[in-house]
Design a protein around this nucleic acid. Structure first.
Lengths: 220, 220
DNA sequence: GTCTATAAAAAGATAGAC
DNA sequence: GTCTATCTTTTTATAGAC
């Protein structure tokens, strides 16, 4: 059959060997790497133990079973990725000078689209979430999170509306549209990272998407 | 790779339920059902054999190994789904009377978004494609297909532009935008069907997306 | 072509020593 | 807490009869 997961035992060695906490961290790191790369079913607990440089029994002592380890690790990774996207949102779209709103939104869109296309951990964890959610309903508890992303955009758009720089009667809808026209386009076209997109493609998509957004929401 | 019904070696016509061709069809049906529901790794050849009502050995005689059966079945299912979407595109967006273009595009968007949300075979096969593509590079050969969908939209938009009913200088970009604002929104928000969306939610998303599209591409 | 029966390997989880 | 060694079940794939 196709290759089974066999990690190199050496790759996990050399870390602070001492305490229980160090081993736990090594397990999390190894599990994240392997789960994101190969999915739940294709990764064996043996492989995680080898990659982390601990025995399999130690993993079972810490987490009880493979499923719990998976949910723990993926949940944490997902939250980290959502946080990174929200941070990106907060970094841009703030304090745009009146005359640079349109350029600012275009630059923001490019940045966000490029981030979407070039952060393999983000795409991998979302692909994993989508494919495993039917088998681990607990994963669906995280569904509410992405709202935070567009909520963050909506807040900025409402501010731009208040300054009369955009015409955004429904900020939440508009935020969804900006998201769909930039990051959403990248997600769909790349199949969440399964298909590689060139930098040019991403830039063109984001730019044309942002321009369409501006035509729709520019004050008349 | 591609999966067509093989030419029957002995019989001239028909398909006796107990014959080789009948069994092959039963295998395909069972495999599609189980793979779409549970993914590649979670489905055993034993389970497929039981579901199809044939022996495991018969499956191996027909397909050689599990991977080939999977690629065959998923490839055929994916092509079928793409065809259904393109057919939907072709059904709408044609012969819109001058005064009903905007309403027609909104109706089209709702229809397409609802189809996207309510066709579990479509979402399941795309989720499967995304999650398995890294392990089966052959699946990536299908990546070119989705272009057919937006190309179909682009053609209609260009026609509406020629009639002066829309202002669409770049039909392919505009088609991508309409797709992103309707079906794309549904795909992203539902995580390709992993999260259930209410009918109201889908309708609201599609309607607001179509209206944003129209504001961006309405003639001035 | 199709079936029953059976390899051969790998998986998740546990026992018991230290 | 951690390790080595082992149990039990399930998996893919094949042998050989009909």
């Amino acid at each position: 059959m196709h290759s089974q997961v066999r990690a190199h035992p050496s790759s996990g060695r050399g870390r602070p060997a001492g305490g229980s906490e160090g081993k736990r961290a090594a397990i999390v790191l190894a599990a994240r790497r392997l789960f994101l790369r190969d999915g739940f079913e294709r990764v064996s607990v043996d492989a995680i133990a080898a990659e982390a440089g601990v025995s399999k029994r130690t993993i079972y002592n810490h987490y009880g079973d493979k499923e719990r380890l998976f949910l723990d690790v993926i949940g944490e990774t997902y939250n980290t990725m959502i946080g990174a996207v929200v941070a990106l949102m907060d970094k841009y779209l703030t304090d745009l000078p009146d005359e640079a709103v349109e350029d600012g939104i275009i630059a923001f869109s490019r940045e966000v689209a490029m981030f979407a296309a070039r952060t393999p951990e983000r795409t991998a964890v979302i692909r994993l979430l989508m494919s495993e959610a039917p088998h681990f309903p607990a994963l669906l508890a995280m569904e509410a999170r992405p709202r935070g992303i567009t909520a963050s955009i909506a807040e900025r758009l409402a501010r731009l509306d208040a300054r009369g720089l955009l015409d955004v009667p429904e900020p939440q809808d508009a935020a969804n549209h900006l998201f769909a026209l930039t990051m959403g386009q990248v997600n769909n076209r790349s199949m969440y990272g399964a298909i590689e997109l060139s930098e040019d493609e991403v830039t063109r998509m984001a730019t044309s998407g942002a321009r369409a957004f501006l035509r729709a929401y520019r004050p008349r």
